[in-house]
Design a binder for these strands. Structure first.
Length: 693
RNA sequence: GCCAGUUUAGCUCAGCGGUAGAGCAACGGUUUUGUAAACCGUCGGUCGCCGGUUCGAUCCCGGCAACUGGCUCCA
């Protein structure tokens, strides 16, 4: 289906000129990839081949399924093209010329291909606005519709590698045909290419699924619990609780109050909030509770029998309703209709016909008068519950800002193909809070939220982050977004102003807002330079009004508050998934599931008694400590502890005991040496309390 | 949900048209030890699930599920 609208992400010529040198190089490499594929499969049809974050891709349609086994020969052809050092030549043409070349199959080909027109290029041409120049780029025989820019020559592509093949919809629309997408990456030189693959290897080594398994942090039991429903094992729960304690302290200090809400709510909640219909497909299907279900089905069956009887004996004609019309009626409408028609009955009707019609009416009434089934949904968000907490008591301007915080569990029916380890799940624990405030208070509250982020970033040693400010699009109003154009602009201006004033690093992207207001996604980069979107802030100008939330202002009138949704620590699932990679499982002491392991050299008294007292003292101070007093060799015990990534190891032999010492060893750092027992314990307690990195 | 790939013991992985094997872990012993592995033994699997082909299927074929890489979506 041709896409009439401009794709929201289509780059303007201006954007294209901003392409970095590396992006140009990668984009050029995509053309070289297409050149190579055409030499092997001349019939291939190409769609789009842009640079992306870590490389480039080209989408193509081809009968042969390209697999990684084909990469070697494709790469060999690519090398030939690079060695030929062809110039990337820009050619400006008229739209008529471009359409003619697409029809002949010349675009995205090595020559004309009669009977095999460049179908996707025709679609791409349609997206080019009138007045914008139409250009080709040619390298050797390969001619492509392309706005550029490119490097000068194919030989400028220093080092490249094809990485994987995937499928993608033409223009990203699932209604369009699926294409094969060949991914690759390219760099200025071989050194940088190798550094990139080293980083990928490191990311694999730090994969949260692998480390989570090894360290016993969480389990995914799709058979019994369900896909995307994580079980937090004791070690993982230790991290969960350390994070919750951090959040509770930070939120308490920032004037938040805590609340607790159930995991489900009645349908009315989500009809009012607007999650239905905007969000319905991301929610688990509803639960129906029908306390009179047997009576309801009994009456319905009887009613249907009577209708059939009426149709067979002609009584239905008096009612003047076809079977299809009747089926479409609600029980209320059906009763009303029957009630009305039976009032106007011709007294000459046979008594039996009358009796049946009246009985039908009575059954319809009984059915209508049954209490309706109750419908409940698992919550996909905490906001509606918090809104009802706001509504639970009368509010004055003196109560604002009201900051309601909760680590709330939400359930989202993510499509099966979207699930991924802990990073994308169906049950998630959010570091959620909603701040109800006046428009005047907004800037200050928003700044305070940003400060909280910065505080967290410091604790976790995150030096690179970015706020991604998502705004609405005019076309989405009434569809993807609540139809309040003025409020959208007003709120977006307000947020933009605060972002600029606070000097925070942000980018703005259109058409990615939440349905009820603009959104700020927080992106952070892990220790090995991978990007994660871990948290989100949203400004909600619409839903509080839908719930009729008001506060009494100074002037004795009722006003609707603004609501800021914020979740700096995101969800436990994604945030801990991120932390696992960030720390490679080597958590700082305050987060480490097993903070300390005390191990003795041998198992003889009084050594064990001495060690046991240290364990007891640490436990009394809420330290997560384990003892290893077995007769295994000390090297073996140390290896066990190192493999378990225990942060601090206290090795105790008779030498230590006699001096009142412990020998300290830190995970990954090796033996530190002996120190007085009291000093070692005190240092552990301080490092935990200060959340030292 | 769509396209592709994967699924063998708790974990990492061999293997094969004739009903399975290693290392680690676990368990039982022996060993009394100074900073990343002392030794011996034992247990452990409807080869993801359901069908089909076959004398016989973990292996071949089909369907389903889960997981993974992407797409769409998203914290």
């Amino acid at each position: 289906m041709p896409n009439a609208e401009q794709p929201a992400d289509r780059k303007t010529l201006d954007d294209r000129q901003k392409m970095t040198d590396l992006e140009r190089l990668r984009h050029s490499c995509a053309h070289v990839l297409a050149t190579a594929i055409l030499r092997l499969w001349p019939e291939a049809q190409f769609a789009a081949g842009p640079p992306v974050e870590n490389g480039f891709y080209y989408d193509l349609d081809l009968g042969h399924r390209i697999s990684p086994e084909d990469f070697e020969k494709i790469e060999a052809e690519m090398k030939k093209e690079i060695k030929a050092n062809n110039v990337f030549e820009r050619i400006v043409v008229t739209r008529e010329q471009a359409l003619a070349d697409a029809a002949s199959g010349r675009l995205g080909g090595l020559g004309e291909r009669p009977g095999n027109p460049s179908k996707f290029k025709i679609g791409n041409l349609a997206d080019i606005p009138e007045g914008e120049p139409i250009s080709y780029y040619r390298n050797g025989d390969f001619l492509d519709l392309c706005a550029g820019p490119h490097v000068m020559r194919t030989g400028n592509i220093g080092a490249f590698k094809l990485t994987h093949v995937a499928s993608a919809y033409y223009k990203g629309d699932e209604k369009n045909p699926q294409l094969q997408r060949i991914y690759g990456t390219a760099f200025k030189n071989k050194t940088e290419l190798e550094a990139y693959f080293t980083m990928i290897e490191e990311a694999k080594r730090r994969d949260h699924r692998k480390i989570g398994q090894e360290m016993g942090l969480f389990a995914l039991d799709s058979e019994y619990v369900g896909p995307g429903l994580a079980l937090w094992l004791p070690n993982g729960t230790a991290i969960v609780e350390a994070l919750e304690t951090l959040a509770k302290e930070a939120e308490f200090a920032a004037g938040y109050v805590r609340v607790k809400t159930p995991h489900l709510a009645r349908e009315k909640m989500y009809k009012t909030s607007g999650h239905l219909p905007y969000y319905a497909e991301s929610m688990f299907p509803p639960m129906q509770i029908d306390e009179v279900a047997p009576r309801r089905s009994e009456l319905a069956a009887k009613k249907q029998q009577l209708w059939e009887l009426c149709r067979s004996n002609g009584a239905a004609e008096i009612l003047n309703v076809s079977a299809t019309e009747q089926a479409a009626l609600s029980s209320g409408q059906e009763f009303q209709l029957l009630d009305q028609r039976t009032r106007e009955l011709d007294p000459a009707l046979p008594a039996e016909t009358k009796r049946v019609l009246l009985e039908l009416r009575d059954i319809a009434r009984a059915l209508f008068q049954l209490p309706p089934a109750e419908v409940y949904y698992l919550k996909a968000m905490n906001c509606p519950h918090h809104h009802r907490i706001f509504a639970a008591e009368p509010r004055s301007y003196r109560d604002l800002p009201l900051r309601l915080a909760e680590y709330g569990t939400c359930y989202r029916y993510e499509q099966s193909g979207e699930l991924f380890g802990l990073m994308r799940v169906r049950a998630l624990n959010m570091n959620d809070a909603h701040i109800y405030c006046t428009a005047e208070q907004f800037a200050e509250e928003f700044r305070a939220v940003n400060d909280m982020y910065l505080k967290y970033f410091q604790i976790f040693g995150l030096s690179k982050y970015q706020m991604r400010f998502s705004t609405h699009s005019a076309e989405g109003l009434g569809k993807k977004y609540v139809n309040e154009p003025e409020l959208w602009h007003k709120t977006e201006d307000m947020v933009r102003r605060v972002l600029i004033e606070s000097g925070i690093n942000y980018v703005e992207v259109a058409n990615e807002a939440a349905f009820y207001g603009p959104k700020i996604d927080v992106q952070v980069w892990s220790a090995i330079g991978r990007e994660f979107t871990i948290a989100t802030n949203q400004v909600d100008f619409a839903v509080p009004a839908k719930f009729g939330l008001t506060y009494r202002d100074r002037d004795n009138t009722d006003k609707t508050p603004l609501c800021i949704h914020r979740a700096p620590l995101g969800t436990h699932e994604r945030f801990i998934g991120f932390l696992i990679e960030h720390y490679a499982g080597n958590f700082p002491l305050w987060l480490a599931p097993e903070q300390v392991r005390v191990m003795t050299i041998g198992d003889e008294e009084p050594l064990v008694t001495y060690a046991q007292a240290i364990v007891a003292e640490l436990r009394a101070n809420q330290v997560r400590v384990k003892a290893d007093f077995t007769t295994n060799k000390i090297n073996g015990k140390i290896q066990d502890a190192e493999k378990a990534k225990v942060h601090t190891m206290l090795v105790i032999g008779s030498r230590d005991m006699e001096a009142g010492n412990v020998s300290l060893r830190l995970h990954g750092k090796g033996n530190i040496g002996a120190k007085p027992k009291a000093d070692a314990v005190a240092e552990i307690l301080v490092a935990i309390k200060e959340r030292r990195g």
